[in-house]
Amino acid sequence: MTRSHILFLNVSGIAVSLVLWEIAGRIVGPSLLAAPSVVIGTFLDLLFQGDMLRELFGSLRQMLVGFGLACIIGMPLGALMGRIRLVDALFHPWVSMVVVTSVAALAPLFILIFGTGFEFRVAIVFVASFGYIVLTAFHGARGIDPKIVDVARSFAVGPFESYRQVILPALFPYLITGARLGLIHAIRAMVMAEMFVLVGYGGLIFQSGQELSTAPLISYLVSLMAVSILANSVLGWTGRRLAPWYDSKMSR
Protein backbone atom coordinates (compact mmCIF):
# COMPACT_ATOMS: atom_id res chain seq x y z
CA MET A 1 0.00 0.00 0.00
CA THR A 2 1.38 3.40 -0.95
CA ARG A 3 1.63 6.30 1.42
CA SER A 4 -1.05 8.30 -0.33
CA HIS A 5 -3.41 5.34 -0.28
CA ILE A 6 -2.89 4.96 3.48
CA LEU A 7 -3.39 8.68 3.99
CA PHE A 8 -6.61 8.51 1.97
CA LEU A 9 -7.90 5.66 4.13
CA ASN A 10 -6.93 7.54 7.32
CA VAL A 11 -8.75 10.66 6.25
CA SER A 12 -11.82 8.81 5.00
CA GLY A 13 -11.98 6.80 8.23
CA ILE A 14 -11.96 9.98 10.28
CA ALA A 15 -14.50 11.60 7.94
CA VAL A 16 -16.89 8.67 8.17
CA SER A 17 -16.65 8.71 11.97
CA LEU A 18 -17.34 12.45 12.07
CA VAL A 19 -20.39 12.06 9.80
CA LEU A 20 -21.76 9.21 11.93
CA TRP A 21 -21.17 11.30 15.07
CA GLU A 22 -22.92 14.29 13.45
CA ILE A 23 -25.95 12.15 12.52
CA ALA A 24 -26.11 10.61 15.99
CA GLY A 25 -25.75 14.04 17.59
CA ARG A 26 -28.56 15.51 15.49
CA ILE A 27 -30.87 12.62 16.40
CA VAL A 28 -30.35 12.57 20.19
CA GLY A 29 -29.73 16.28 20.67
CA PRO A 30 -26.87 18.18 22.34
CA SER A 31 -27.96 17.33 25.90
CA LEU A 32 -27.05 13.68 25.23
CA LEU A 33 -24.41 14.01 22.53
CA ALA A 34 -23.39 17.28 20.95
CA ALA A 35 -22.69 16.96 17.22
CA PRO A 36 -19.25 18.03 15.92
CA SER A 37 -20.76 21.10 14.23
CA VAL A 38 -21.99 22.26 17.66
CA VAL A 39 -18.82 21.24 19.49
CA ILE A 40 -16.49 23.21 17.24
CA GLY A 41 -18.07 26.55 18.15
CA THR A 42 -17.99 25.78 21.86
CA PHE A 43 -14.45 24.51 21.56
CA LEU A 44 -13.22 27.72 19.94
CA ASP A 45 -15.07 29.80 22.56
CA LEU A 46 -13.45 27.88 25.40
CA LEU A 47 -10.08 28.02 23.69
CA PHE A 48 -10.10 31.82 23.37
CA GLN A 49 -11.62 32.31 26.81
CA GLY A 50 -8.40 30.83 28.13
CA ASP A 51 -9.69 28.95 31.17
CA MET A 52 -9.50 25.59 29.48
CA LEU A 53 -5.86 25.83 28.47
CA ARG A 54 -4.81 27.43 31.75
CA GLU A 55 -6.33 24.61 33.80
CA LEU A 56 -4.96 22.00 31.41
CA PHE A 57 -1.40 23.26 31.57
CA GLY A 58 -1.64 23.73 35.34
CA SER A 59 -2.67 20.10 35.71
CA LEU A 60 -0.01 18.89 33.29
CA ARG A 61 2.72 20.70 35.21
CA GLN A 62 1.74 18.88 38.37
CA MET A 63 1.52 15.62 36.48
CA LEU A 64 5.04 16.06 35.09
CA VAL A 65 6.42 16.18 38.65
CA GLY A 66 4.95 12.77 39.48
CA PHE A 67 5.84 11.34 36.08
CA GLY A 68 9.39 12.72 36.25
CA LEU A 69 9.92 11.18 39.69
CA ALA A 70 8.63 7.85 38.40
CA CYS A 71 11.12 8.00 35.49
CA ILE A 72 14.07 9.03 37.68
CA ILE A 73 13.47 6.21 40.14
CA GLY A 74 11.83 3.64 37.87
CA MET A 75 14.29 3.53 34.97
CA PRO A 76 17.44 2.73 36.98
CA LEU A 77 15.49 0.32 39.17
CA GLY A 78 14.12 -1.54 36.16
CA ALA A 79 17.56 -1.69 34.53
CA LEU A 80 19.12 -3.05 37.73
CA MET A 81 16.34 -5.61 38.06
CA GLY A 82 17.08 -6.80 34.56
CA ARG A 83 20.83 -7.16 35.18
CA ILE A 84 21.02 -8.32 38.82
CA ARG A 85 18.97 -11.31 39.93
CA LEU A 86 18.86 -10.37 43.60
CA VAL A 87 17.45 -6.91 42.90
CA ASP A 88 14.85 -8.52 40.68
CA ALA A 89 13.88 -11.03 43.35
CA LEU A 90 13.52 -8.28 45.94
CA PHE A 91 11.44 -5.87 43.91
CA HIS A 92 9.54 -7.86 41.31
CA PRO A 93 6.61 -9.04 43.45
CA TRP A 94 5.96 -5.52 44.69
CA VAL A 95 6.26 -3.95 41.27
CA SER A 96 3.74 -6.46 39.85
CA MET A 97 1.50 -5.61 42.78
CA VAL A 98 1.71 -1.90 41.94
CA VAL A 99 0.91 -2.56 38.29
CA VAL A 100 -2.27 -4.53 38.98
CA THR A 101 -3.48 -2.21 41.75
CA SER A 102 -6.04 0.21 40.42
CA VAL A 103 -5.01 3.75 41.27
CA ALA A 104 -8.64 4.72 41.82
CA ALA A 105 -8.74 2.39 44.82
CA LEU A 106 -5.69 4.16 46.22
CA ALA A 107 -7.24 7.62 45.87
CA PRO A 108 -9.23 7.63 49.15
CA LEU A 109 -6.21 6.32 51.04
CA PHE A 110 -3.83 8.84 49.51
CA ILE A 111 -6.21 11.65 50.41
CA LEU A 112 -5.96 10.52 54.01
CA ILE A 113 -2.16 10.48 53.84
CA PHE A 114 -1.41 13.50 51.65
CA GLY A 115 -4.56 15.64 51.76
CA THR A 116 -6.14 16.77 48.51
CA GLY A 117 -3.41 19.11 47.27
CA PHE A 118 -0.29 18.92 45.18
CA GLU A 119 1.28 15.95 47.01
CA PHE A 120 -1.82 13.84 46.50
CA ARG A 121 -1.81 14.33 42.75
CA VAL A 122 1.93 13.76 42.47
CA ALA A 123 1.69 10.56 44.50
CA ILE A 124 -1.20 9.16 42.43
CA VAL A 125 0.56 9.93 39.14
CA PHE A 126 3.79 8.43 40.46
CA VAL A 127 2.17 5.16 41.51
CA ALA A 128 0.21 4.91 38.24
CA SER A 129 3.21 5.30 35.94
CA PHE A 130 6.00 3.80 38.06
CA GLY A 131 5.25 0.11 37.50
CA TYR A 132 5.07 0.38 33.71
CA ILE A 133 8.33 2.32 33.50
CA VAL A 134 10.11 -0.22 35.72
CA LEU A 135 8.80 -3.28 33.90
CA THR A 136 9.63 -1.97 30.43
CA ALA A 137 13.18 -1.07 31.51
CA PHE A 138 13.41 -4.50 33.15
CA HIS A 139 12.45 -6.35 29.97
CA GLY A 140 14.87 -4.23 27.97
CA ALA A 141 17.78 -4.85 30.33
CA ARG A 142 17.07 -8.56 30.59
CA GLY A 143 16.79 -8.93 26.85
CA ILE A 144 20.19 -7.42 26.08
CA ASP A 145 22.07 -9.87 23.91
CA PRO A 146 24.77 -11.41 26.15
CA LYS A 147 27.06 -11.52 23.12
CA ILE A 148 27.44 -7.75 22.92
CA VAL A 149 28.19 -7.59 26.64
CA ASP A 150 30.78 -10.36 26.15
CA VAL A 151 32.39 -8.50 23.28
CA ALA A 152 32.79 -5.44 25.48
CA ARG A 153 34.28 -7.62 28.18
CA SER A 154 36.66 -9.33 25.71
CA PHE A 155 37.98 -5.94 24.71
CA ALA A 156 38.60 -5.25 28.40
CA VAL A 157 36.10 -2.41 28.57
CA GLY A 158 35.58 -1.44 32.20
CA PRO A 159 32.19 -1.80 33.87
CA PHE A 160 31.45 1.92 33.71
CA GLU A 161 32.45 2.26 30.05
CA SER A 162 30.60 -0.89 29.05
CA TYR A 163 27.53 0.48 30.78
CA ARG A 164 27.78 3.76 28.90
CA GLN A 165 28.75 2.33 25.52
CA VAL A 166 26.87 -0.96 25.41
CA ILE A 167 24.08 -1.35 27.95
CA LEU A 168 22.63 2.14 27.78
CA PRO A 169 22.30 2.33 23.99
CA ALA A 170 20.69 -1.12 23.94
CA LEU A 171 18.38 -0.08 26.74
CA PHE A 172 17.44 3.29 25.34
CA PRO A 173 14.53 2.21 23.08
CA TYR A 174 12.95 0.45 26.03
CA LEU A 175 13.35 3.48 28.28
CA ILE A 176 11.53 5.62 25.71
CA THR A 177 8.82 3.00 25.27
CA GLY A 178 8.47 2.78 29.05
CA ALA A 179 8.17 6.55 29.23
CA ARG A 180 5.46 6.55 26.55
CA LEU A 181 3.54 3.82 28.35
CA GLY A 182 4.06 5.53 31.70
CA LEU A 183 2.90 8.84 30.30
CA ILE A 184 -0.41 7.36 29.13
CA HIS A 185 -1.01 6.04 32.62
CA ALA A 186 0.18 9.28 34.20
CA ILE A 187 -2.37 11.30 32.22
CA ARG A 188 -5.10 8.80 33.08
CA ALA A 189 -4.19 9.01 36.75
CA MET A 190 -4.02 12.81 36.70
CA VAL A 191 -7.56 13.08 35.34
CA MET A 192 -8.83 10.44 37.74
CA ALA A 193 -7.26 12.11 40.78
CA GLU A 194 -8.55 15.54 39.81
CA MET A 195 -12.03 14.24 39.11
CA PHE A 196 -12.00 12.62 42.53
CA VAL A 197 -11.24 15.83 44.44
CA LEU A 198 -12.84 18.16 41.87
CA VAL A 199 -9.83 20.34 41.17
CA GLY A 200 -7.88 21.27 38.04
CA TYR A 201 -8.73 19.97 34.62
CA GLY A 202 -10.33 16.75 35.88
CA GLY A 203 -12.61 18.83 38.10
CA LEU A 204 -13.54 20.92 35.07
CA ILE A 205 -14.48 17.75 33.16
CA PHE A 206 -16.56 16.36 36.00
CA GLN A 207 -18.43 19.60 36.58
CA SER A 208 -19.14 20.13 32.89
CA GLY A 209 -21.22 16.94 33.06
CA GLN A 210 -23.87 18.93 34.91
CA GLU A 211 -24.34 21.45 32.12
CA LEU A 212 -27.30 21.37 29.76
CA SER A 213 -25.18 20.70 26.68
CA THR A 214 -22.47 18.10 26.31
CA ALA A 215 -20.53 20.42 23.99
CA PRO A 216 -18.20 21.81 26.72
CA LEU A 217 -17.56 18.30 28.03
CA ILE A 218 -16.61 17.06 24.57
CA SER A 219 -14.39 20.13 24.07
CA TYR A 220 -12.48 19.32 27.24
CA LEU A 221 -12.06 15.71 26.10
CA VAL A 222 -10.82 16.84 22.68
CA SER A 223 -8.14 19.07 24.23
CA LEU A 224 -7.07 16.22 26.48
CA MET A 225 -6.86 13.93 23.48
CA ALA A 226 -4.76 16.44 21.56
CA VAL A 227 -2.32 16.87 24.45
CA SER A 228 -2.04 13.13 24.96
CA ILE A 229 -1.35 12.43 21.28
CA LEU A 230 1.08 15.34 21.09
CA ALA A 231 3.04 14.20 24.16
CA ASN A 232 3.20 10.66 22.84
CA SER A 233 4.50 11.72 19.43
CA VAL A 234 7.04 14.08 21.00
CA LEU A 235 8.43 11.16 23.01
CA GLY A 236 8.47 8.95 19.93
CA TRP A 237 10.21 11.68 17.94
CA THR A 238 12.76 12.14 20.73
CA GLY A 239 13.42 8.43 20.68
CA ARG A 240 14.04 8.38 16.95
CA ARG A 241 16.12 11.55 17.10
CA LEU A 242 18.41 10.51 19.93
CA ALA A 243 18.66 6.89 18.89
CA PRO A 244 18.19 6.17 15.19
CA TRP A 245 18.02 2.47 16.02
CA TYR A 246 14.79 3.10 17.98
CA ASP A 247 12.45 2.19 15.13
CA SER A 248 14.26 -0.96 14.11
CA LYS A 249 13.91 -2.20 17.68
CA MET A 250 10.35 -1.09 18.27
CA SER A 251 8.66 -1.30 14.91
CA ARG A 252 7.02 -4.61 15.73
Binding site: R188, G202, I205, Q210, T214, Y220, M225
Partner: peptide, 14 residues
Protein backbone atom coordinates in the same frame (compact mmCIF):
# COMPACT_ATOMS: atom_id res chain seq x y z
CA UNK B 1 -5.76 8.56 24.19
CA UNK B 2 -8.62 10.05 26.21
CA UNK B 3 -8.44 8.67 29.75
CA UNK B 4 -11.47 6.38 30.26
CA UNK B 5 -12.43 8.03 33.56
CA UNK B 6 -13.04 11.23 31.64
CA UNK B 7 -16.06 9.50 30.08
CA UNK B 8 -17.70 9.26 33.51
CA UNK B 9 -19.80 12.45 33.06
CA UNK B 10 -21.03 11.05 29.75
CA UNK B 11 -21.88 7.71 31.27
CA UNK B 12 -23.82 9.47 34.03
CA UNK B 13 -25.84 11.34 31.41
CA UNK B 14 -26.55 8.20 29.41
Amino acid sequence: SIPSVAFVPFLIIW
